[in-house]
Design a protein around this nucleic acid. Sequence first.
RNA 1: GCCCCCAUCGUCUAGCGGCCUAGGACGCCGGGUUCUCAUCCCGGUAACAGGGGUUCGAGUCCCCUUGGGGGUACCA
Length: 550
Amino acid sequence: MAFSRIHWRYSMVVTRFAPSPTGYLHVGGARTALFCWLMARHHNGRMILRIEDTDQKRNTPTAAKQVQDDLRWLGIEWDEGPEVGGPNGPYAQSERLDIYKKYMDKLLAEGKAYYCFDTPEELKAMRDQAEKAKKSLIYRAPAVLPTEADAQKAREEGRPVTVRFAMPDKDMVITDVVRDECTFKRDELSDFIIQKSDGFPTYHFACVVDDELMEITHIIRGQEHLMNTPWHVAMQESLGFKTPVYVHMSVTMSETGGKLSKRERPKALKNIIKQTGDIDLDALTAAAGIDAEEMSRFLKGKAVPDMPVIDKMAGYLGISLPEINVVDFMKSGYLPETMVNFLALLGWNPGGDREIMTTDELIECFDISRFAKSNSLFDRKKLLSFNTEHIRMLSPEKLLFHFKNYLKIVNSVVLCDDDKLLARLVRINEGARTLADIERKCRFLFADDDDLDYDMKSVKKVLLKKDGLAMLGLVGETLKGLGELSPASIEKCLRGLAEEKEVGLGKVAQPLRVGICGNTVSPPIFDSVDMLGMDRTLNRIEITLKKFGD
RNA sequence: GCCCCCAUCGUCUAGCGGCCUAGGACGCCGGGUUCUCAUCCCGGUAACAGGGGUUCGAGUCCCCUUGGGGGUACCA
């Protein structure tokens, strides 16, 4: 195929992940980063991380750091970029302004770009007019290009001064690994802004310059950039740059339709608030730490609060929002190995029946020619099953590492320094689907005996019906007689009791479980009792009997 | 509106003109194991969007229709 010829022109594969620091890294971005990284690793090449912060309005100061943390959590390490440095720095576009100026001046001097002085209002009028003619606005250079002096004058008069790139007088044909050739007609390609009135280059310009200077060989990005490519290629031709190999990946879709986006969570939250009648809005506003005005704007769909505020509201309401950002998945107890495996299989596959793979296997079999053309839906159920599989596959050491990390992130009561205990908790929860499942089932161990969180549904079902309480008392009596405590001895004891009473083990274990854990879900009962210890087990049984006895 | 891209089970997909009576995975349904939740094991359900061509032969190539998605910014 054509592209396999293309990439041996390069001595080394260089890819780049170029996020704009507008917030947390979401799964769509993570997928793009992953493929850039797999491509680089498979070919023993380099991956560059570049921060595209040319929009002064949208950038948030902590976002770049957050994105880097999320990439690292996934195990995606860049060879060049922020924090690691490299020969092609700086790696934030806002620090490369002087570089762009050089190329901007060149284009201007050669008449390949030109000044514009339109106000937003004037532009809108032009667009409206074009729309009436059932076309989109195609901006073209005036017959006589404005001079530097004209630009200076406009600046003094307070008019906005932008620079547009003059599209060449021809159709553009671009080559894409996923879609082969795409042709764009000259009539459809407007001259576009490459320098904003604030003096910053637009993404299009900065990206083309940087990709050349950083010697990027393969650009892997979302299909939403396909329409930008003729512009980029036109600039490359004008500046005498090489054209890299383009790989436009299909888009990841949400179950609710449309591109999976960060707006999903606020949207879901808003819907829940609106659909649930009896929510104390004042309390919610207070819990979120915002004012009534902002809450009202949010509910009317006029403003979207920051993610931490959204999280606080969800926390207050006790609901979980669909995970979108990498941190969301982290907090839901997914493993990085799961995310990498799952994301790699969205719009890409190694062929045949292979699905569950380690990261090393993915690197090994990654092949740029195996991207799917069609969009794919993010299926959370399948993700869950992948996580179950990876939890099973991972070594106890790695699992313990992830579990501790998880406990820290969610600030769990289970977090402690006793690695032996934590390792045991992980081990006895074999078959768990998420780290959150493990954590939830182990909380009872860390509660005070007299402050156990009883789930009333469980209590009613197991203790208050039939002779549940009586059985619990009996279990307590029987356990008292047990000398040495171990899972095996407890098992023998409880099985003996069940046999004696001619009932199934469940009839014995469930009352005990509710008695010491407060609900019907816990790790295996023998381990649960063993870990709690005899004193606390008996203590809890006594407290439970007293509490629900009459 | 205009431009571009896409189209196999509900979902992710294998398939690159005869190996397809269309394979796998998730889900779902049924059964089994089990002290709870899970896990695990067995079985089942289910797809080539529609219509034209090309060809001895089409899920695979071409065209149209329909449907979905993306773009249409001084966002990236």
